[in-house]
């Protein structure tokens, strides 16, 4: 067991913002820390990173208390952080130096990542013949997406053992989203330990095996994502026919969750009811063009768990 978070607690006054959070990453991969806004994800991450003092609990790395200052950890924060008026190269070298990376090594890595993330023009000012050399770029001259790329470079520059990504894909266009996903996959392939926090459930489903859903500091759901889904059963039926089939739906008394041009999403009790429904559709001479029975998505599970808690409160 490599990364183990045990019973983390943090309170401000009489408000408990993280209440006995425990989870572990037994092997390299991505762990998802999910929750609504203000659920305690960032506070938990800060405690794991040792930035914030914890009231109780412990974070262990390979069985020993984790000291972020003596470890190689990469962090991409939810709220991007760059000095707006300092040169980008200076900032990256500074972050690298703080992580103990030698200047020449840092420069090599910056060059690699700059090419990879297509931000060379911002880090290496051009000099066109007969023209004055361009001034190095400051962070506030970059778009949000490009700033995010620089942030990712800062997180990866030390080739970290543990990588913590807080909302890594927010605000990115589809092209850059794919680029980031590719890099995350590469890091997983390199055997890194990743903790990812995101509100994009599809992304979590794409990368994460284990999840924890927090709500108001408390763990409301935790475990292997596939197991969690299986426990819900295959209750989502997606169906599309060339003809109207509302009469068949009414006959079975099914709840329509969604009605889109791509078909209807129905709530069924299980595979048996779905089979009967399909049989009746065919008997009624309907042309079935889509029939998909599957478990609830993480999005639905999240809304159910976190949303329910919201409503209760």
């Amino acid at each position: 067991m490599s990364l183990e978070v045990k019973e983390l607690v943090k309170s401000y006054g009489d408000k408990t913002v993280v209440d006995h959070l425990s989870f572990s990453l037994k092997e390299p991969g991505v762990y998802a820390l999910l929750g609504t806004n203000g659920a305690g994800k960032t506070t938990s991450i800060r405690m794991i990173l040792g930035m914030l003092a914890k009231d109780s609990g412990e974070v262990l790395w390979k069985g020993k208390p984790m000291d972020s200052m003596n470890m190689n950890i990469g962090y991409l924060a939810e709220e991007r952080g760059l000095y707006p008026k300092y040169e980008l190269m200076d900032q990256l070298l500074y972050f690298a130096k703080l992580k103990g990376v030698a200047k020449d090594v840092a420069k090599e890595r910056i060059a690699y990542w700059a090419k990879r993330l297509e931000v060379e023009e911002y880090l290496y000012p051009k000099q066109t013949k007969g023209k004055k050399k361009e001034k190095p770029k400051m962070a506030d001259q970059l778009s949000k997406g490009n700033q995010q790329k620089i942030q990712l470079m800062a997180a990866l520059i030390s080739e970290p053992e543990i990588l913590i990504l807080d909302e890594p894909l927010s605000g990115l266009d589809p092209v850059n989203t794919d680029l980031f996903k590719e890099i995350i996959r590469e890091e997983i392939a390199k055997g890194k330990y990743l903790i990812m926090s995101s509100h994009q459930m599809a992304t979590i489903e794409e990368f994460c095996k284990d999840i924890t859903i927090l709500n108001r500091g408390k763990v409301v759901l935790q475990g292997d994502l596939n197991e969690i889904k299986k426990s819900y059963g295959r209750v989502n039926l997606f169906i599309k026919c060339d003809e109207e089939f509302d009469d068949v739906i009414a006959k079975h008394g099914l709840e329509v969750l969604n009605d889109t041009p791509d078909g209807k999403q129905l709530k069924v009790t299980g595979e048996e009811q779905a089979k009967h429904f399909l049989k009746d559709l065919l008997a009624a001479d309907k042309t079935v063009v889509r029939f998909e029975l599957r478990e609830p998505s993480l999005h639905e599970i999240f809304v159910e768990k976190a949303g329910a808690q919201h409503e209760e409160e």
Binding site: R46, L49, G50, M51, S68, M69, I73, Y75, A77, E79, R80, G81, L82, Y83, P84, F95, L98, K99, A154
Partner: peptide
């Protein structure tokens, strides 16, 4: 304030107290 408002502090705090 610059480090706080731009959230640079989040990065610095991993390696500096």
């Amino acid at each position: 304030v610059t480090e706080k408002s731009t959230r640079v502090v989040e990065y610095l705090m991993i390696n500096v107290r």
